[in-house]
Design a protein around this nucleic acid. Structure first.
Lengths: 193, 193
DNA sequence: GAGTCATACGGAGGGAGCCTCCGTTTAGCA
DNA sequence: TGCTAAACGGAGGCTCCCTCCGTATGACTC
C-alpha cells in the first residue's frame, strides 16, 4: 500500500489564520445571541470583518460553527472558574461563576433548537461539556467546603442542574434578572453560619 | 369616535379561496415531512399548484403555516378516532388509532425544532391539542372498557404519554417500525382474558 | 533581509428562497 | 347579465448560501 512518506516538519499555522478564526468565533457569538440560530452567516463574516470565504474555510457548515462556539464558551466558563478560584473569596467565586452560567444559558436560549440538534448530532460534545463544567464547579465547591463557608452535601452536578433548571422557564422578558436573583437565594441557602 | 357602521351581510367565502387553503395545507404537510421545518415555502406553493402570493395571503408567516398544519393534523386524528369508534372492534380501533399517532409523531420529527418553537410561542395550541386528543383517546378507551376487552385502570393521558414516550427515541433509521411493534405490545398488555 | 511558496484571504457571482406589490381574473350577489 | 369585492399569480427586489479563483501574506530558507 501507499507509504505516507516522511513526516512533514509541520509549519506553524499562520498568525492571520488563527486571528481570523478567533474573530469569527466572537462574531458568531454576538450574531447568534442576537438573531438566534438562523442568524445569517454573512452577518457573522461582516461582524468579524472577514470575507465569507474565510468563514467557510474555517467552518465548512453552520453546524461546525455552532459546535465551535459552544465549545469556545465552555472553555471560557472553565477558564473563568480557574480565575475566580485564585482571585475571589470562595463564596463570591461560586456565586459569580453560577451567574456567568446563567448568562451562558441566556445566549443559548435563542438557539435552543440548533443546540438541541448539535447536542443530538454530537453526543461527545454534550458529554465532555458536562464533564468539564462539572470539574470547574467541583473546584469552586471544594474550596468553599474546605474553608467551611458552605454546607458539604451539595455536589458539582447539583450546581449545574440548578443553573440549568432555573433557566428552564425563560419565556418572559427580563427572565434573566429573575433567575440571577434565584441563584443568589440558592447560594445564600448553601451558606453556613 | 368612528361608528363602525351597519354590520355587513358577510358574503360567503369564495370557493377557490377555501380550496386553495386546503391545498396549501396538504402541500405543506408533504413538504415539511420530507424536508423538515426548513422546507421552502416556494416548494409548498409549487406542490400546491398555487402562486406564492396566495400562500402568503393565507399564511402570512411560516409560523402561521406550521400551526395550521399542526392543528389540521390534530383535527384529522380526532376525526379518525370518531370514525374508528363507529367502524372497528374496540381493541382494533384503539390499536389503529395509536398507530396513527405514531405516524403523526413521525411527521413531526423532522420539524421538532420548529414545533418546539410553535408550541412555546402558542401555549393555547399545545393545551387545546392535548385536550382534544385526550377526548379522542377517552372515547376509544371507554368503549373498550365497557365491552370488557381491556383493563380499566389506564387513562386517556396514559395513552398519549405512551405514544409520545415511545417515539422519544427516534434517531435510528427504521425507528417507526420498532415503535409500532411496541405499541402492539402495549395494546396486548391492556387486553383482558 | 530577500526570495520562495504553501497557505490563507476576499469577494464576485450564480443559484435559491423570502416576501411584497399590483395588474388580472373570478366567484358571489343583485 | 353585469358589478365589484375578493382572490389569484408571479415578476421583481432583496438577502442569504456557498464555491471558486486571482491576489496577498506569513513562515521558512539561505
Amino acid at each position: 500500500m501507499n507509504d505516507i512518506g516522511p513526516v512533514k516538519p509541520a509549519r506553524k499555522p499562520r498568525a492571520d489564520s488563527v486571528r481570523n478564526r478567533e474573530r469569527v468565533l466572537d462574531a458568531a457569538h454576538v450574531v447568534f445571541a442576537l438573531a438566534g440560530a438562523a442568524g445569517s452567516l454573512e452577518a457573522v463574516a461582516r461582524e468579524a470583518g472577514v470575507g465569507t470565504g474565510t468563514l467557510y474555510r474555517h467552518f465548512p457548515t453552520r453546524q461546525a460553527l455552532f459546535e465551535a462556539v459552544y465549545r469556545h464558551e465552555v472553555d471560557q466558563l472553565v477558564a473563568l472558574a480557574a480565575r475566580l478560584d485564585g482571585e475571589a473569596a470562595p463564596l463570591d467565586a461560586l456565586r459569580a461563576w453560577m451567574r456567568a452560567n446563567v448568562a451562558f444559558m441566556a445566549t443559548k436560549k435563542g438557539m435552543s433548537a440548533a443546540l438541541a440538534v448539535a447536542v443530538h448530532a454530537n453526543t461527545d460534545l454534550a458529554a465532555s461539556s458536562v464533564e468539564r463544567l462539572g470539574h470547574a464547579a467541583e473546584t469552586l465547591l471544594r474550596r468553599a467546603v474546605q474553608e467551611g463557608v458552605i454546607r458539604d452535601d451539595i455536589g458539582a452536578q447539583d450546581i449545574l442542574r440548578t443553573v440549568v433548571g432555573l433557566c428552564y422557564v425563560h419565556d418572559t422578558p427580563g427572565w434573566q434578572d429573575g433567575v440571577l436573583r434565584l441563584v443568589d437565594v440558592f447560594v445564600d441557602g448553601m451558606r453556613l453560619g
